[in-house]
Design a protein around this nucleic acid. Structure first.
Ligand SMILES: [Mn+2]
Ligand SMILES: [Mn+2]
Ligand SMILES: [Mn+2]
Ligand SMILES: [Mn+2]
Lengths: 144, 144
DNA sequence: TGATAAGTATAGCTATGGCTATATTTCGTG
DNA sequence: CACGAAATATAGCCATAGCTATACTTATCA
């Protein structure tokens, strides 16, 4: 039974489920970005993270503290931020999903820039089943 | 120039934009639900709102206070909740968008129940342009 | 090498949105 | 019409996520 690994502790109520997805959204965006920065610049610095997330430096620091608490990243004072194995795995999944959502929206006729904007929020609420449906459409297996 | 009326104060950064959409999400869901309850039961009571949102009664009361502060609803102590004209207009827009998103996902091959779950989060991040693209697909004007 | 600049941490504030426990009001019924 | 039940409000707690101001550490370069 595939796709089941994402369904642990799924709340019955749809609003509760959306709230849970939202709670994970910030963590997802941070790990993805830290992964990006590490790949691009060789390291992820708080200042760069803050700039790209469009938040103040102390806000970024605080969110990074949460990443560390949840075992997704590590850092030592005045030094850069690093993803744990778990963090890196999450980053890869999140990045792939982000790209799929953007590509799918573009396929639906949405302009690139708008697709990128909308995807940044939408991605966090797309279940594995829906993601697979998007991938199927992109592969040309049109369900219509 | 249509669709422009939704683009006032759109932030440049995509993360900032997603944060703004998120801030509006709770208000949107509440007004839609208050509209639903009013239509179904003749009135929207705090207890019913709380039950459907899957939150405690005090949490619902507090969110309703925010709705009132923002001019979307009114209520007197120990009495039901009513939408203002602005709140009712927002509720109608939100409800229509919700239905479009669900219908679109179902068209993409997503099962009803999952479409309903995902849509509850996705809907708040779908711009007017993307919504129009979804509507076009539903009308059969397939972009592929 | 030491002063300055840059980067990071910390303090302390706000708003939001959860919760439980409890007070208060209204409602329904005998 | 009074009393108990149901509904609502209030108090007070917590976590998250934003901010500015400021302290501290590290890096750079004259
Ligand atoms: Mn995102
Ligand atoms: Mn993303
Ligand atoms: Mn919703
Ligand atoms: Mn909805």
């Amino acid at each position: 039974m595939p796709d089941t690994f994402l369904d642990k502790d799924t709340p019955a109520n749809r609003f509760a489920r959306a709230r849970e997805a939202q709670a994970a959204a910030l963590l997802e965006d941070y790990v993805e970005m830290i992964g990006d920065l590490t790949a691009e610049l060789g390291e992820a610095r708080v200042a760069d993270i803050a700039e790209r997330m469009n938040v103040s430096q102390p806000t970024a620091t605080k969110s990074i503290a949460r990443l560390k608490r949840e075992g997704l990243a590590t850092s030592r004072p005045y030094r850069g931020v690093f993803l744990t194995d778990e963090g890196a795995r999450l980053a890869d999944r999140v990045r792939a999903r982000h790209r799929t959502v953007v590509a799918f929206l573009v396929r639906m006729g949405v302009p690139e820039e708008i697709a990128e904007l909308d995807a940044e929020g939408i991605e966090h609420h797309v279940s594995q089943v829906t993601l697979s449906a998007f991938e199927a459409v992109l592969k040309g297996e049109d369900p219509a």
